[in-house]
């Protein structure tokens, strides 16, 4: 696909808008990922972070950490990327209709959740209360700031942000995102949480959500392992008996709780 637009989000993280060379649409479910190929440098699994209601343009937010992602982030508008996908499981948005939804995430974890937020806003009347709890190291490390500002202005989506530290111009919360869960969260009854962060942070988020009254079966999370093929054939992404690339990346927490409790699995 061709890069039709590129935006630097924050240091080392870029968002790409892609369109097929021959036109056409790219349909996906929120939470799914693509294998992105950079000529000669290799293929990397990257979550889709755009609006599932706008299949004309595929959106990926990429952090430059390895050879392939560094080369990817150096690509310019007009250049090409190989795209295989979409792969993997999705946030079960249809199944969650009628529920209150709380998104809990930090850092780049917002990228895989953003399609679910779009989905919810596109079908707003099908869901109850919606809350986005998002944390970053400092205000400059928040992703999609313009969009966060727009979302904060809506009456039908509560946005709570926390940063690890901030200068006096920041008027929001300061602290770790997990402490916002207990401060923000009010009604466990009919609420489901969708969370995405580093694995250790997600365990802390689950702990907070449990304390707030959510059961393990009310929590969905997106996991990460080494993914080479995306097809369940290469074996790299196994976490115990599951293949993250085809059974995941999105799991209901109670299905993987025992696996996440193990070291080096």
């Amino acid at each position: 696909m061709v890069i039709t637009k590129k935006r630097r989000e924050i240091e080392g993280i870029h968002t790409f808008w892609l369109e097929p060379r021959d036109g056409g649409e790219f349909h996906f479910d929120p939470g799914q990922f693509n294998m992105l190929y950079v000529f000669g440098a290799g293929e990397v699994p990257i979550s889709i972070s755009g609006d599932p209601g706008k299949p004309g343009r595929l959106v990926h937010t990429v952090r430059a950490v390895g050879k392939a992602t560094q080369r990817l982030c150096a690509l310019k508008t007009g250049e090409s990327l190989g795209v295989r996908g979409p792969f993997g499981s999705a946030w079960p948005m249809a199944q969650l209709e009628g529920k209150n939804i709380v998104f809990v995430t930090s850092g780049l974890g917002l990228a895989p959740l953003r399609p679910a937020v779009y989905w919810l806003l596109n079908h707003r009347q099908r869901y109850g209360k919606a809350t986005l709890i998002y944390g970053a190291r400092n205000p400059r490390r928040l992703l999609y700031v313009d969009e966060l500002r727009k979302w904060r202005g809506r009456f039908d989506l509560r946005v709570e942000l926390a940063v690890g530290s901030a200068d006096p111009t920041w008027d929001g919360n300061i602290g770790v995102v997990t402490s916002l869960v207990s401060k923000t969260f009010v009604e466990p009854g009919n609420t489901v949480a969708l969370i995405c962060s580093s694995e250790r942070m997600m365990r802390a988020m689950v702990e907070q959500l449990n304390q707030a009254g959510l059961n393990d079966g009310d929590i969905y999370l997106s996991l990460e392992r080494s993914i080479k093929c995306g097809l369940g054939l290469c074996g790299h992404c196994q976490l115990g008996p599951t293949f993250i690339c085809k059974d995941g990346p999105v799991y209901r927490y109670d299905q993987v709780k025992g696996l996440l409790a193990q070291r080096e699995l």
Partner: peptide
């Protein structure tokens, strides 16, 4: 044992690239 790596490489002139499958081991 079926696990494998997918290894990408390119020629020095940057005009050609290749993906190979190689056995890999857990």
């Amino acid at each position: 044992c079926f696990c494998h790596d997918l290894a990408d490489s390119e020629t020095l002139d940057g005009l050609h690239a290749s993906r190979r499958r190689r056995w890999s081991s857990c």
